[in-house]
Design a protein around this nucleic acid. Structure first.
Lengths: 196, 196
DNA sequence: ATAAAAAACTAATAAGTGTTAGTTTTGATA
DNA sequence: TATCAAAACTAACACTTATTAGTTTTTTAT
């Protein structure tokens, strides 16, 4: 009889969620069946329900874990009294590192959140909007202190948050690009621009 | 009896593809049923098959139309003898305008291409890789001519192609951001950076 | 070794899937 | 007005879906 193997660091539920994140990323949430997930883990589909509530709950677990990680880090950054530039650099660095260390989960949170059911969908969107607004405040502060150029803060935030997702593409190019280069290049590009 | 209404500019097949793009964008390809698509158009699901071959074919139509539009524009840019900076600016501008004028189709091509079936999936990935490589050459040329900083050209391309996708996010913020600002801000940010 | 709890299994449910076959209606042309 | 093709319809197919019920096996604790 097959078994779900919990490790010291991950409960059985976490093992399932981890595998689910990988499948949701590669095939999309809707196109991944519970039978397929079960097969990847090595048990029957119905056995999963001893450990999880539903397929939807798996998506919720993944999305809110990621959202909370980002929120917690932002709390830390806001506490410090660094310049806006340092704060932005820390935030960008955290995004890049999260995408490298939890790539499946972050991908799913970025691309499959729309499949959340209510009220989780609304919660998620609100949490995201609040997160963006707090970035905007950091940028506004930097403009006020003449540290940053007077670009539109909302657009700037959206541009940065989009740009860091290049790490997703990078996963396809791993051979030709070093991971250290990736981080420094993106930060340099976004902060200092491309033109000599 | 309900009908699919073709206009002067769009055949019935194009009307279906347009509506499909909107649904595939908002619900994902896998989560959109042919019955749902049909209902949105105002006919029965089986009636669609008088005009299209399959659900998969719809996705192919959408994805390759977008891919070809980008390839054709890149051909034009390469023909001209402008500086690399002007070329990049033209390319970025085109991306932004495509996302504004064909937002559903571009979104689907960006996010749902994984659901393509073979051999279309491989074709699409190859076309995309070739497109990226031609961007890389433009950047390399700019570095050679001392127009651009010596950043990693691959990462630079990925960063730009990611960053322009901020237009997707912008659709959620329409009220607070002008579309003109959007274009100039993104270009300024990506070319000249954020720091004063 | 025994009893209880946890977690696996098989089997089934009800609903939904893309698509096809066959039929009827529609709209244009002769 | 009669004819014919285009395009709509209804009904059905064969399959897949998430999830539950009921049962058996495995693990844990006494």
């Amino acid at each position: 009889m097959a078994k779900i193997i919990a490790t010291k660091n991950s409960s059985k539920k976490e093992v399932i969620a981890k595998k689910a994140a990988a499948l949701f990323r590669n095939k999309s949430f809707a196109a991944t069946s519970m039978r397929e997930l079960a097969e990847n883990i090595g048990v029957e589909a119905s056995s999963l329900y001893n450990h999880i509530g539903s397929k939807n709950e798996l998506l919720q677990t993944i999305c809110f874990k990621v959202a909370n990680d980002f929120t917690i880090h932002l709390n830390e950054v806001e506490k410090n009294t660094n310049s806006s530039i340092i704060k932005l650099e820390e935030l960008i660095r955290f995004h890049i590192n999260m995408m490298l260390s939890h790539s499946d989960e972050v991908f799913v949170a970025n691309h499959e959140w729309k499949q959340l059911s209510e009220p989780f969908l609304s919660n998620f969107m609100n949490q995201r909007k609040s997160y963006e607004n707090r970035w905007v405040e950091i940028i506004k502060d930097g403009i006020r202190k003449k540290e940053l150029k007077n670009l539109n803060p909302h657009i700037t935030v959206l541009t940065i948050l989009s740009a860091v997702r290049s790490v997703e593409f990078w996963q396809r190019h791993k051979k030709s690009i070093e991971s250290n280069d990736l981080e420094s290049n993106i930060i340099d590009h976004l902060l200092n621009g491309l033109i000599k």
